[in-house]
């Protein structure tokens, strides 16, 4: 039985047995290379669920949104009228790590989520796919085993699927769920995590000026639509500092320094909290390379604190805890 079919059966089972109120998953999109997040509340709708390499966005963001909205709706109710909401979520490795971060940060209780773990062999980067098609429109797209074929007005072409997988996926260390309530499908073979910091190493080798110039150039592309922030499961501040007006931290105009300030602040807020799901890169309409900077923070988190975000429930994020054996040389030797 295909993994998709098993996933659909699991959704029916969970919804019919009232174990969950909603299953957050993916459905087929309206474009040949897209899958869209979907929310199944009725067991009869289970047929909409798909699972393929076009499923890109990290669904943990929606789990948080749904549970927060529910919490807010319960506020003015009498205690006896309050209900519990359980969200089922189709989760691959990175999604489960984001859920772990939510749990560690006490956003909701473990029994409010039901994790339907799925193996992952990487998702297709829309940007890489567009580049492979030479910027021409893709009118059809199909994946057969490890090959991807796409059709443009110039004809049909077949390429290795790996050549268009997102950078985050190629060097992913956790492509199988780190926690789950039920696992659908067999674990996926490992990706190539040993190369995960190759990009960062090259970036670190550059001079400070070169690094700043690279950052400044990338930020010039940003149109401040905040898609990166909004898709990020770790970006859940009720009011983001960029939107605060008393005081106003960041100007509303398109001044370069304002855009840089927003991105720098967001990046630093991700220290020890970024699972490298690649969603922010995937959703950016302008193709800003955010990953390099996030990965640098991730590398520092590992080197300084032996911490990988969302890896284990027991391991708290480094900036949330203090331990007597924390490295502290940097305080004296900047």
């Amino acid at each position: 039985m295909s993994i998709e079919k098993r996933l659909q059966e699991k959704a029916v089972e969970l919804l019919s047995e009232k174990k969950v109120d909603v299953v957050v998953g993916y459905e087929a999109g309206t474009l040949p290379y897209q899958a869209a997040p979907c929310f199944i509340e009725n067991p009869d709708d289970e047929g909409r669920l798909v699972l393929n390499p076009f499923c890109s966005v990290n669904l943990a963001k929606y789990v948080h949104d749904i549970l927060m909205a529910h919490k807010a709706s319960q506020k003015r109710m009498k205690p006896e009228q309050r209900t519990k909401k359980v969200v089922g979520v189709v989760a691959r490795g990175c999604t489960t790590r984001s859920l772990v971060i939510h749990l560690q940060e006490r956003q909701y209780e473990r029994d409010q989520i039901f994790i339907i773990g799925v193996p992952c062999r990487g998702y297709v980067s829309k940007k890489k796919l567009a580049a492979a098609a030479g910027g021409k429109e893709i009118t059809a797209c199909a994946i057969i085993n490890d090959r991807l074929s796409f059709t443009t007005p110039d004809g049909t072409k077949e390429i290795p699927l790996e050549s268009v997988l997102a950078e985050s996926c190629l060097s992913c260390r956790y492509n199988n769920p780190v926690i789950s309530d039920v696992m659908v499908g067999d674990p996926a073979p490992p990706m190539k995590p040993d190369s995960e910091y190759a990009d960062v190493d090259a970036f670190e080798a550059m001079s400070g000026e070169e690094r700043w110039n690279y950052f400044a150039e990338e930020m010039k592309k940003c149109i401040r639509c905040y898609a990166c922030r909004n898709t990020c499961p770790s970006c859940y501040c009720k009011v983001c500092f960029v939107e605060q007006s008393q005081p106003r931290w960041v100007g509303v105009s398109v001044d370069e320094s304002d855009t840089q300030a927003f991105q720098i602040m967001r990046l630093f807020h991700m220290a020890g909290r970024c699972v490298d799901c690649g969603s922010c890169v995937d959703v950016c309409p302008m193709g800003v390379d955010l990953r390099k900077f996030l990965k640098k923070l991730d590398k520092d988190g590992y080197n300084l604190f032996a911490h990988r975000a969302g890896e284990k429930m027991e391991q708290q994020p480094p900036l949330s805890v203090h331990s007597m054996d924390d490295k502290d040389e940097f305080i004296y030797e900047p």
């Binding site: 149109i223 898609a227 959703v283």
Partner: peptide
């Protein structure tokens, strides 16, 4: 709206969207 990220991609790339805000800095 359920899957909407509430980002500004659609409105910022749209040729006809014209709502604006006025702010004093």
């Amino acid at each position: 709206h359920k899957s909407c990220l509430a980002c500004g991609t659609c409105t910022y790339l749209c040729p006809t969207c014209h709502c604006f805000d006025i702010t004093d800095e």
